[in-house]
């Protein structure tokens, strides 16, 4: 009984202390928000952090006009194939990348502004049965795609107008790659997680597949979010959208695993479990930035964790107008974008 009485109090404190509401953006024309992101956008010599909202048939760019007020800059209409997600491109300006498809990604497009003829444009980057895609530094995109016979893992370079000629094919593992993460601290290293719970490491420059390391079957369908190398070890942040509760580590949503890439041996470093009262099924989707993770839980709440402490640090209950459906970190850290299915996006300061 004591635990039940304490839990709501603890969760209220988490929200009040660490997440402060900043502003709200409502796309009145949209009733089907599928993703939200931030992008640096430069116009008339002024560079601003803008919000990008996507619904199934269009993508809109919003710029800050005044405190708590956003103005729509432009809306790209996409046509018949629905938008599935926005693909963030690190360190880029005036470039938005999106994935379109039905059950899986069938097309990747760039949305951009062309100063040469003063117009907003879109261009096709890639088509296929695309299983995973990630925006890399230096305006590159890595993707895994499958044909009946084989898997292709490809890095494409992007120009201001679309796909560049230079690219690199990476040696594919036998199993399907479901997620990618660049390795911080090792230039040219890339990791991926596969459908049979392996972490694979590539050399982006040569295309070599350097190592395949098994994660273990305790937490199936692990997805890599972030990787960094320190003191000869490769640390990988994994999420477990479908993990089951275990006695030893509770209900883990995220894990930090240390791999020795030389021997392929690994050990768990930190577990981040669901907050009290959220046992059972895990979460719908989540995102990691630096040492912070955020996810929408099946209860309709948003949870934020400090991955180094292994603790839930904030909890945002479902809002008055409904459950949360999306959560994304801003390009600049310490800001969180929380989306609802009616197209409303709430900006929170996270401290």
């Amino acid at each position: 009984n004591e635990a039940e009485q304490l839990t709501p109090l603890l969760l209220d404190d988490l929200t009040d202390e660490n997440l402060q509401f900043v502003s709200k953006l409502k796309d009145s024309s949209s009733s089907c928000a599928v993703d939200v992101s931030t992008v640096w956008w430069e116009a008339a010599g002024r560079r601003e952090l803008c919000v990008v909202t996507a619904c199934e048939i269009s993508v809109s760019l919003w710029k800050p006009l005044a405190p708590d007020h956003w103005g729509r800059v432009y809306t790209w209409q996409l046509g018949e194939i629905p938008v599935i997600q926005i693909i963030p491109l690190p360190d880029t300006c005036n470039l938005i990348c999106i994935a379109l498809g039905n059950l899986e990604i069938g097309e990747i497009r760039l949305l951009l502004y062309s100063s040469a003829n003063d117009s907003f444009k879109q261009s096709l980057v890639k088509t296929g049965n695309i299983k995973a895609v990630l925006g890399l530094k230096d305006r590159r995109l890595v993707s895994s795609s499958r044909t009946m016979q084989e898997q292709q893992v490809e890095v494409v370079s992007l120009s201001e107008t679309g796909r560049s000629k230079d690219g690199q094919t990476l040696m594919p593992p036998e199993e399907t790659v479901l997620a990618f993460a660049e390795v911080e601290g090792v230039r040219d290293a890339l990791v991926g997680t596969t459908a049979v719970n392996s972490v694979v490491v590539w050399n982006l420059k040569t295309g070599q597949l350097l190592k395949k390391m098994h994660v273990g079957y305790s937490y199936p369908a692990s997805i890599c979010h972030r990787a960094y190398s320190d003191s000869g070890l490769l640390f990988v942040v994994l999420s477990h959208p479908h993990a089951k509760e275990s006695e030893s580590c509770g209900n883990p949503a995220f894990r930090v695993i240390a791999f020795n890439p030389k021997t392929a041996r690994s050990t768990g470093v930190m577990f981040s479990s669901l907050p009290p009262g959220h046992a059972g099924r895990q979460y719908l989707e989540g995102e990691v930035k630096d040492a912070s993770a955020a996810a929408v839980l099946t209860s309709g709440a948003i949870a934020v964790w400090d991955l180094l402490l292994g603790q839930c640090t904030a909890l945002l209950p479902p809002g008055p107008s409904g459950s949360w459906s999306l959560v994304r970190w801003c390009v600049t850290s310490a800001r969180l974008l929380a989306g609802q299915t009616d197209g409303s996006v709430y900006v929170y300061r996270y401290s």
Binding site: S229, A258, R265
Partner: peptide, 23 residues
Amino acid sequence: CSESDLGPISLNWFEELSSEAPP
């Protein structure tokens, strides 16, 4: 975690694996 659990650690793991892996 200790080195004995994970085996011998190399600070240059990326370069070493790149020189060992097939091109």
